[in-house]
Design a protein around this nucleic acid. Structure first.
Length: 738
DNA sequence: GGTCACTCTATTTTT
DNA sequence: TAGAGTGACC
């Protein structure tokens, strides 16, 4: 890697000063250096897992500033998560020995938010616009559906939300849609009504942040020109995860002059389901014809065997850009495979290995247990608790998403922006103050009929059509918010939060509603919220501290779990493991139907994404990788039997080592997960196929929904017309093919 | 307006 | 199995 001779560089034509850039180049290998020092111009770095992707980005930024004489002011670096953004900022400053201050470094959403705050007028937003998180968004959509008298059973809020966000991610407004059928028509109608409601209330959802910026820049060529001239250097992390609008946004900002430097890995694209377009990697090369392509394939993380196993697996995917990881390190141990009897057996195995690791002087936080879906964590948690092994589960409810925190925030938001319907609705009757569903319904109706917000509707109604009792309650609520606004004016933020929480009597509310620990925990969280407000540092200009804090709460929902002070086993889904590394990794629940997940197995693209997910999981491991499955597993309260994951059969067999092969398995080990497994729709030697109509002597007629296993051991799931869905062992079922 | 019992459903997740 | 959501009832 590094050389003893200092690297000198003629720093940018402007300065003519010769800089010592040793600290930037020394820690890099040849490929990384090639990427970092690429001539100013579009560049695409295909960075395999563990190949130093972040390092390249960070060093590129430093290189541009120190060697090319680029002002940090002209630098824009984009990531997907707040964590990645702050890491990048920190590392760049560290490398520069000074702050990267003027550079814009942040998430797509964070940067767009910043632009909207600066140019709220151009964007057509109220100055105090508020941000909806997905929970707020879903509630609002639900309300919109009701207000349209659409059938809630047919138009499921979740699905509508999905639809709207997908359209926005594609850059499409309701007005841009041309529905072909009734369903699409209705979606469009709801979308349009949702847009109107958001505009009226001055609220913006996540996807809107991007779309609104995009539209504003297109509408205002001066503004666009300004930013195009300013940001000549764009750095993008995790490029394979960009969606349509993010790509369009980058391209727009690039204009003719900017030099995007993007880093990504098509093999780690695991977010297609939420709109990410791997194709953007190829599109980039087409759209920026002189793109310099650099591949980073040297891996600094895993042993040779682990890499070979991962490489072997991923070759089963079609249409890859092509990349093969290698290492100068040792081969290490083989990849261990464990087949448990059931999920408890699987968990016990992990427990044993954890204990052994710790007994040999290892730390628990060097171990990660990865699984496909969150529900799988339970067995491990129970087992870890029994065995007194500290653990930490990632994911789950985040601080700013907690009910009590959101209630308090809603008060603060109302104080800030009276028209925020989402917040109004949330707290009109929390704590209960005699404003029942009937009254709220009247307010909604009035708001809808008069095209106004709930707040204004409430004001209008107190002087009119409400019963005197209801009118009094509503009036009391309105006055209370106004009083809060007055009382809070000019106070430091944490005192504002304190005041609002006290005035709304939220503590008493939670204490009385949930006795004992749960209620107490909520009260504590309210205290934490005050602390968060106290410690909040804001640097954005042109925005009140409170607006900044509220935006922060929405954009950065906080940690999933309290920070682990103890040395804990790390547990998380494969998705959340991306970007992390651990000496010891367990990938659990490797069974067909669970991983690859049932719902992806019928779709070849979905299956490839699952395979990439497995690849991501494997490449998290530095030294020891355990692949585990269970033959039988309790799922949704029912016992289910399944075959080991087809992916196991795609890992070169010579790299695998069976741990404690089960004695009662008659098939030879090599046959257990051979040859890629049966594809869905295959009859797997049972003579039955999915969708087949069958008759049963007792249950009548039905349709085969699932086929598992082979020959006489096979089990089928049949959806009977009369009896519903049943699992049957083929050997005894006496099914008649119809 | 609050409680209880019943039904329904059941990836992955950041912002 | 468990959690959310709903509707009936007090």
């Amino acid at each position: 890697m590094g050389s003893a001779v200092p690297h000198l560089y003629n720093a940018g034509s402007a300065t003519g000063v010769v800089m010592d850039v040793t600290h930037i180049l020394d820690p890099l290998n040849d490929r990384q250096r090639e990427a970092v020092t690429a001539p100013v111009g579009p560049a695409l770095v295909l960075a395999g897992a563990g190949s130093g992707k972040t390092r390249v980005l960070v060093h590129r930024a430093a290189w541009l500033i120190e060697a090319e004489g680029v002002s940090p002011h002209g630098l824009l670096a984009v990531t997907f998560t707040n964590k990645a953004a702050s890491e990048m900022r920190g590392r760049i400053s560290e490398l520069l020995g000074s702050s990267a201050g003027a550079a814009w470094i942040g998430t797509f959403h964070g940067l767009c938010h910043r632009l909207l705050r600066m140019h709220w007028q151009a964007a057509g937003l109220p100055q105090s616009f508020q941000i909806l998180d997905s929970d707020d968004q879903q509630r609002l959509i639900k309300r919109v559906i009701r207000s349209l008298d659409a059938d809630e059973n047919r138009w499921v809020p979740r699905e509508v939300q999905w639809f709207i966000n997908n359209r926005k991610d594609e850059g499409l407004r309701a007005a841009n849609l041309h529905p072909d059928d009734e369903t699409e028509h209705e979606f469009k109608r709801i979308y349009a009504a949702y847009e109107t409601t958001c505009d009226r209330a001055g609220v913006v959802d996540f996807a809107e942040l991007l779309l609104r910026v995009q539209e504003t820049l297109i509408r205002d060529p001066d503004l666009l020109g300004h930013y195009q001239r300013r940001f000549r250097h764009l750095l993008v992390d995790e490029f394979q995860d960009t969606n349509e609008i993010q790509y369009a946004w980058l391209k727009l900002l690039s204009g003719d002059g900017a030099q995007p430097f993007v880093v990504g890995d098509d093999d780690q694209s695991i977010y297609r389901w939420r709109g990410a377009k791997v194709e953007n990697l190829q599109r980039f090369q087409r759209d920026f014809p002189n793109t310099r392509l650099v591949r980073l394939e040297q891996n600094y993380r895993s042993t040779g065997n682990i890499l070979a196993a991962a490489n072997g697996l991923i070759t089963h995917n079609q249409g890859r850009l092509g990349k093969e990881l290698w290492t100068e390190g040792s081969e290490g141990s083989p990849v261990h495979v464990f087949g448990g009897f059931d999920e408890r057996d699987e968990a016990e195995f992990v427990v044993d290995k954890v204990k052994a690791w710790v007994d040999h002087g290892g730390r628990r936080d060097e171990i990660a247990v990865l699984y496909r879906s969150n529900a799988q964590s339970r067995v491990f948690e129970e087992m870890f608790i029994n065995e007194r092994i500290p653990y930490r589960v990632y994911g789950g409810l985040r601080f700013f998403e907690r009910q009590e925190v959101k209630d308090a925030l809603a008060y603060l938001r109302l104080v800030q922006s009276r028209d925020d319907d989402t917040s109004f609705e949330r707290v009109v009757n929390v704590p209960t103050r005699g404003i029942g569903s009937r009254t709220v319904e009247l307010i909604r109706e009035y708001a809808r009929d008069n095209a106004t917000t709930l707040w204004r509707a409430a004001i209008a109604l107190t002087g009119g059509d409400l019963s005197s009792r209801a009118a009094n309650s509503v009036q009391a609520f309105l006055s209370q918010i106004e009083a809060m606004a007055v009382a809070v004016k000019g106070l430091p933020m944490h005192e504002q939060a304190e005041h609002v929480i006290a005035a709304a009597q939220l503590e008493a509310h939670y204490r009385s509603r949930e006795k004992g620990e749960r209620g107490e925990a909520r009260v504590e969280n309210l205290g934490e919220l005050v602390n968060a407000a106290r410690g909040f540092q804001y640097e954005e200009e042109g925005l009140t501290p409170m607006d900044a804090f509220l935006a922060h709460a929405a954009l950065e929902a906080g940690e999933g779990q309290a920070a682990a002070w103890e040395d804990c086993v790390q547990m998380m889904t494969l998705h959340s493991a991306k970007g992390l590394e651990f000496p010891v990794v367990f990938i659990c629940g490797l069974e067909d139907g669970l991983f690859p997940h049932q719902r992806t197995m019928t779709d070849p693209e979905g299956l490839e994404e699952e395979r990439r997910l497995f690849y991501v999981g494997m490449t998290r491991a530095m030294r020891e990788l355990y692949l585990c499955y269970a033959e039988q597993r309790r799922l949704h309260g029912m016992e289910a039997y399944s075959e080991p994951s087809r992916f196991l059969g795609e890992v070169p067999r010579e790299l695998l080592e069976e741990v404690r092969p089960r004695m009662n398995v008659s098939r030879p080990v090599a046959m257990r997960y051979g040859g890629g497994g049966a594809l869905a729709g295959d009859d797997a030697g049972t003579g039955l196929s999915l969708g087949q109509r069958v008759g049963h002597p007792k249950f009548g007629e039905g349709i085969v929904v699932t086929v598992e296993g082979h020959g006489a051991h096979a089990r089928v799931q049949v959806n009977f017309e009369a009896e519903g869905s049943k699992w049957l062992v083929l050997q005894y079922a006496n099914l008649e093919v119809l």
